[in-house]
Nucleic acid binder design. Sequence first.
DNA 1: TATCTATTTGGCTATTTTGCCAATTAGGCA
DNA 2: TGCCTAATTGGCAAAATAGCCAAATAGATA
Lengths: 109, 109
Amino acid sequence: MQPKTLDQFTARAAVLKALAHPSRLFMVDQLSDGPKCVADLQELVGADTSTVSKHLSVLYNANILAREKCGNQVFYSLRMACVMGFFQCVESVLSGQAQITADLVEDLK
Amino acid sequence: MQPKTLDQFTARAAVLKALAHPSRLFMVDQLSDGPKCVADLQELVGADTSTVSKHLSVLYNANILAREKCGNQVFYSLRMACVMGFFQCVESVLSGQAQITADLVEDLK
DNA sequence: TATCTATTTGGCTATTTTGCCAATTAGGCA
DNA sequence: TGCCTAATTGGCAAAATAGCCAAATAGATA
């Protein structure tokens, strides 16, 4: 693989890597409804605030989310709305193979 | 997050996680042209055969690739073709922010 | 059968990721 | 100023990932 090609795929992979976590994916999904602050998302996800904050930073650094300070809270919003279309792609494959998907989820436990 | 919701996002994240690697992304890209055997991909990627084989298994287990044995070689093909459309989405985010992307690649080095 | 090729699997170490707690920073407000 | 809330950062231990080599497996062919 050429260095230039490697850089290109590394950049793409970085975006996917940022999305590739259940909690982060869930937060992206929630943010497709509109901006939310850290505390909102913390309650929805149910993890420690610091954990949620770190997940949000991962998404922000990958340019998936935008961030705006408002008073002493920080609102995150979805910058990369097209990711929602990808879920349909994934869903179309997974839903067509309920058994495989179920196995997959089991394996992951 | 409800258990059912968690399962759903875990399944989605598993697909993204499988894609979230430069070499695997590159292989998926190459396979969008048509099926290839392990040795073909090994040469294109330039890693150890066992490494390539393991990457292919990751993609196969995530239902992204199909696998067919032919003689003593194994051909992999793209099962989830819609992922290619998603790359355009990723690209649109990256290309619209060349500077940020360059920083990202640098950070990753 | 013996052997060669293609692929997968096992095992190992190095690296990365995750998620919690504790501590810090930053912004309101009395 | 002092205090409270919101969010981030540092640090740590557990878990997962990556990639190499060596070994095993499966199929073709002499």
